[in-house]
Design a protein around this nucleic acid. Structure first.
Lengths: 152, 152
DNA sequence: CGTCATCACCTTATTTAATTAGGCACGACT
DNA sequence: AGTCGTGCCTAATTAAATAAGGTGATGACG
């Protein structure tokens, strides 16, 4: 489903998605048309979801981030979900076990902004907030290779 | 610090970081050398942290994800942090307010794997786990433009 | 008030990379 | 054994990135 060459290509692209086909080709020992074909198929199959850029939130003025647990009140689940999708300050959000809770990331410029945002869902859900103090670890993708614990 | 053209370039690159300079140039109304120069400076300034690919964890066999709150026992903070950095199954991780807690994402193939991973830190921290049931929203970057709530 | 420096952009020429087209080898399946 | 499909190759073509050099606006300073 995903051979060793594919994994090596992904590994390189995670570090720099602008790596040229030529460069990729010689790193894995293929020709560039072959690499192009592999990438096209990885995209088609949905393995590669997107080629994107990682932006520093600080550079955009978002000096604060919060992780918020959102528990919609009975019957309000869809309204809350829609709000999360529409409010641009929400970063990634996952639905988790336990009474249909969401765990989401919020990008804000101040505690004031955070309050204002939470107010918008206050009548539709219970929330509990944890302010992020530092980012010891950047965004990390799932491990590409088998590990001691997680074997395919 | 970041003008309108920069924001438009970032917006395009978030959707597809392989967009050619030529294409970027005509979309924002500049020449390609000018765009190249802007991108170079955005990288230098750290606004663009990386050009990368987003990979579908499912495609790699990670059918399960969990969000784990990790509260290191007294004196164990650094050991725990080191473990999080070293264990590849840990995705992004943030330090949050409240007794130096971490909130981290884990990529696993089964509940069994999850247990094994949590065992590795069980004697160094208290943990509480929420299994992710679905991903209603993909990874989303911070908002590029000013919003009603969050004005620069 | 002029002059000089800097900056961000431009165009053109050159180099480098991506893409297309055509062919070959290998394995599966009939 | 023949044929189909797949994944790769090379070579030729097209397209893009980069390098070099020039222009005009802006702001600092003599």
């Amino acid at each position: 489903m995903l051979d060793d060459l594919d994994r090596r290509l992904l590994e390189i692209l995670i570090k720099d998605s602008r790596t040229s086909l030529k460069e990729l080709a010689q790193q894995v020992g293929l020709s560039s048309p072959s690499v192009a074909e592999r990438l096209r198929r990885l995209e088609d199959r949905g393995v590669i979801r997107a080629f994107t850029v990682e932006i520093d939130p600080q550079a955009l003025g978002y000096t604060l981030q919060a992780i918020v647990r959102i528990r919609p009140l009975p019957g309000k689940l869809h309204i809350v979900q829609k709000l999360i999708e529409e409010i641009p300050e929400f970063g990634e959000c996952d639905k988790v076990t336990g009474d249909d809770c969401f765990v989401a990331r919020l990008f804000v410029r101040s505690i004031g902004d955070l309050d204002k945002l939470l107010d918008r869902i206050a009548d539709k859900a219970e929330t509990s907030t944890a302010i992020i103090k530092a980012q010891p670890i950047r965004r990390r993708p799932p491990p590409l290779a088998a590990t001691a614990i997680s074997k395919p």
